[in-house]
Design a protein around this nucleic acid. Structure first.
Lengths: 107, 107
DNA sequence: ATAATATGCAACCATTTGGTTGCCTATTCA
DNA sequence: TGAATAGGCAACCAAATGGTTGCATATTAT
């Protein structure tokens, strides 16, 4: 479960939107996921593959259809293991800048 | 404040580590940020520029030195506006899969 | 004044990325 | 059985990315 694969997967707006759409309605087929994009099915397949590699999407075959399911666990992981660290900053950037400027002015 | 710029900035491990290092010690110079990388200063400059464009890093000149400060606000924003949506999933992916499989098995 | 330091800027390069087209396979429908 | 549907796979392509080298500029130290 590489955090790097997850961040890279989330870097593209199309892929984030695919996750949005699965969040809105889980278990969609590839063709359903293709709807509304000005892009070939093959291009969407590539995006989905990157999401699968990051374990953000899990698939299940039903006959000739491939169903796609959102897996929110990797998102939860990066939120917990990386993003949360910056949620309570040790020092606010603006006040830090002020401190530095004051140090320059008055020091 | 484009969410896309932030996600793209976070996609690279070097840039995430730069944020880590600023989180550990704020206000470092470019040369300090270069330490420990097998990469030219100019390459690090490019990474920093991408972080600046995403407003994740704010800079301040002190003489010939450029000081870098972490700005956690964009991280907070994507956490709040995008990531949090997936933190309480409507349906757990595994149970969803089970439901689908049961539907298939039991008719 | 001169040298060293800290950084910027531009051109260039290889690899990755995001897309395409073309064709093949498997399942379902008539 | 044959056609339509859902999808996979590979080759190819342009643009973006992540890096380099070379040189210029401004500040600081001797």
């Amino acid at each position: 479960m590489s955090m790097d694969a997850v961040f890279r997967a989330l870097a593209d707006p199309v892929r984030r939107q695919l996750l949005d759409r699965l969040h809105a309605r889980n278990g969609q087929t590839l063709n359903e996921l293709c709807e509304g994009y000005d892009m070939t099915r093959q291009a969407v397949t590539k995006h989905v593959a990157i999401l699968e590699q990051a374990n953000l999407v899990v698939t299940q075959w039903r006959g000739r259809e491939k169903l796609h399911f959102l897996n929110p666990v990797p998102i939860h992981n990066i939120a917990e293991r990386w993003i949360s660290k910056f949620e309570r900053p040790r020092l606010d950037a603006i006040s830090e800048l002020k401190r530095k400027l004051e140090g320059k002015d008055h020091g």
